[in-house]
Design a protein around this nucleic acid. Sequence first.
DNA 1: TTTCAAATGCAACTTAGTTGCATTTTCATT
DNA 2: AATGAAAATGCAACTAAGTTGCATTTGAAA
Lengths: 133, 133
Amino acid sequence: MKHAMIDDLLQKRGLKRTKLRIALLNHFLSAKHALSYLEIKGALGENVDKSTLYRNLTTFEEAGIIHRIDHSGVAKYAFGKGQNDGHHHAHFVCDQCETVYCVEKTGATTINVPKGFKTKVVQMIIRGTCSYC
Amino acid sequence: MKHAMIDDLLQKRGLKRTKLRIALLNHFLSAKHALSYLEIKGALGENVDKSTLYRNLTTFEEAGIIHRIDHSGVAKYAFGKGQNDGHHHAHFVCDQCETVYCVEKTGATTINVPKGFKTKVVQMIIRGTCSYC
DNA sequence: TTTCAAATGCAACTTAGTTGCATTTTCATT
DNA sequence: AATGAAAATGCAACTAAGTTGCATTTGAAA
């Protein structure tokens, strides 16, 4: 049950269960792709406050509930931790509709970095065309 | 000789040889990492016009002389074509100083994308610590 | 049911980048 | 060298994304 899961997500991190947060997490849970501020605002209603929404996105990101993806000057957010935390997935960016999807990362990669450089995480961005375009 | 190379770069694309463009390309040629608008402005002098600089960055990018890398809301530029054009390199982002370096990409990768999705280019971003941090 | 930190709402601000337009410059042609 | 047109510049005003300060409200622990 989705509602219980959302309560759990918030409670575990000591985050208060507000109307906006519940709506926001509900939306993230059913989203099929990463969402920009404008997409979220469009979905949750125009009366949602800009600062409150941005602050919650930051809060959720810091709490590891969602992760941010930079996409040509506009941040997009998707459910789940980022790749900084051991969870491995790649981002697919459609060059037609500019939609960003999280996809599973399979297959090994090796990159030689210059001497003195220490690799921590390897992110992948796949550019191409999505199934709707 | 650097000057001749710069003239060549501009001439081949029918771009006029202006003072700013020459200074800009000189700076890019000796840069060891990707540069933001502010870094470039700082290097070329405060009297450089914002629009002119931004317009030249766009022009150079479209001409395939430099390529843009998005980095948490700030665009950075580096010499060379992007990975959309067959040239393969990855970007190393230092999590201490936030500097972006272009590094050679070695080793094969395979990513399974969902049905109906078509992969064109695979970009890689390596996060870690650079040799100066 | 009180209490208080956390969250919200609003307005004002910042930062990155863009646009319109008049002036200047490059470069090819004479 | 002089000319002329297209390209590039400089300036000001604007937009879009995101942030900050502060007074008010709300959730949940006591």
